[in-house]
């Protein structure tokens, strides 16, 4: 696999010098992370625009375009979104485990 040589995240040509607008290429990811990340980035009020694309279906890359208001850094917005997405995952996992532990659901037996 080329994953040892290809960096996970790259900034693509054409980004502004202060990174207030940049496109990030994320290697070995798909709509799974692309759409979730796009949503979390759009939850940031400093983000002017965010969109992602899968440039080619047989290449395992996504590109995330981020444009910021007031010369904020898109890289910092990306890191914040990743952190928030992680918090979200923890919250969903905790709630699910609570419900599973409480055991207040219907149980039934399914035959193979």
């Amino acid at each position: 696999m080329s994953s040892q040589t290809t960096p996970k995240v790259q900034i693509m040509k054409g980004a502004t010098p202060n990174l207030s607008a940049a496109t990030y290429q994320i290697h070995d990811e798909s709509h799974t992370m692309g759409n979730a990340l796009r949503w979390m980035l759009l939850k940031n009020p400093h983000v002017e625009f965010c969109g992602y694309s899968v440039p080619h279906p047989s290449e395992p890359n996504i590109q995330v375009r981020i444009q910021m208001y007031d010369e904020h850094s898109s890289l910092e917005a990306l890191l914040k979104a990743l952190g928030d997405l992680d918090d979200l995952c923890v919250a969903v996992g905790e709630k699910y485990n609570e419900s599973l532990k409480a055991g207040e659901f219907e149980r039934w037996v399914e035959k193979s």
């Binding site: 996970k8 995240v9 040509k13 799974t32 890289l75 997405l85 992680d86 923890v90």
Partner: peptide, 26 residues
């Protein structure tokens, strides 16, 4: 999913230290 987030974050943080220098690395 948390593992994937951690992978991306590690790589994005390393971009932070290079000051987002995107010359020649594209």
């Amino acid at each position: 999913m948390r593992g994937k987030i951690a992978d991306i974050r590690r790589s994005a943080e390393s971009l932070l230290s290079t000051g987002g220098d995107n010359g020649g690395d594209v």
